[in-house]
Design a protein around this nucleic acid. Sequence first.
DNA 1: AATAATAAACCGTCTGGTTGGTACAGTAAA
DNA 2: TTTACTGTACCAACCAGACGGTTTATTATT
Lengths: 180, 180
Amino acid sequence: MNKRAKVTKAQIIEAALNVAAEKGAGKVTLDEVAKVSGFSKGGLLYHFPSKEALISAMVQQLVDDTEAGRQQLLAQGDNALTAMIKAHARLSEQVQGNTAMAILAAAAEQPGLLSPVQQACQVLVQDINAESGDNPEAVLLMLACDALWFQDMLSISPFTAQQKEQLLQYMQRRAKELMP
Amino acid sequence: MNKRAKVTKAQIIEAALNVAAEKGAGKVTLDEVAKVSGFSKGGLLYHFPSKEALISAMVQQLVDDTEAGRQQLLAQGDNALTAMIKAHARLSEQVQGNTAMAILAAAAEQPGLLSPVQQACQVLVQDINAESGDNPEAVLLMLACDALWFQDMLSISPFTAQQKEQLLQYMQRRAKELMP
DNA sequence: AATAATAAACCGTCTGGTTGGTACAGTAAA
DNA sequence: TTTACTGTACCAACCAGACGGTTTATTATT
């Protein structure tokens, strides 16, 4: 059934994300994902005809989740910058640490699987540029936010949780100033 | 001999970086590095007792190179922020694109190999905070610069080369303003 | 409603290939 | 003679994917 298949696919992706988060990006193997998800390897390959397809789906889901969260914040009245900052902060907390690192590292094996991420970035830049009147300060804020996220992703953040919190608050204040 | 060994090690690391840049992070195998470097697999393992040791050396070299470039700029009279921005820009051009992505992705397989990177980041933040009088704007600029580098690394930059150039120029102007 | 037919979802094993690493005998240089 | 390798042969583990078979759900037929 269509619905059942969707649920199964989601479960497999979730399992893959867990494997990546817990064992590291290099350990995302079909066998391991099968074991964790509870489905068989054959079942995996029925839904995702190749490992690449699975990783691609993982990336897509991350992008979709982030974008959905951002849209929700926009609908609540936040400006593009603020929404982005909040969405990223939320994502950083979501699964403590390295879920996304895993995806990116896995995707790095097959360059090109990150193109959905790039597209999402482009949309973001356009939104922010449009709303800020091409103010480079706004783009800088966006980039700084990205960097915090990248650092968390790779567990190389030079900041304490407290410092990061202060930074994010400062950024949100700044975001309100910049957006008319 | 010590000198000869050093040269050989450097050649092996360079070969490994090339493999990573050309074939992707996941394809950095001992056999491939041996083939590209011109040394035998036995030779590799003589100098780097494990793959982990090799990757660790790759990361360390990247960090050292970047830090050396930054120190050079500092010695020439640039302030900490400007030096950092220039050093990153240089690094982005250096090997067109994905050398560093490869290192990071490879390192992601063995979490913890990135700790030299984290340490380097901490030093950077301290330098910039000290020199700017803990101005959060300076940290923001640094983060934005980081983000540009991360984006290049993963080939997900939403900017054209021209746009990035303009951004970097804007950032350098801003850096001069912020630094007394 | 019972049954048969068909398709979708899923299982578990097998295979061919790759990988990191070992062992070791031998060669060349310093 | 020690250091720096070469080259080969080898191994155990791992891995992606193929494959044939089995169960479950849906549809068609009687």
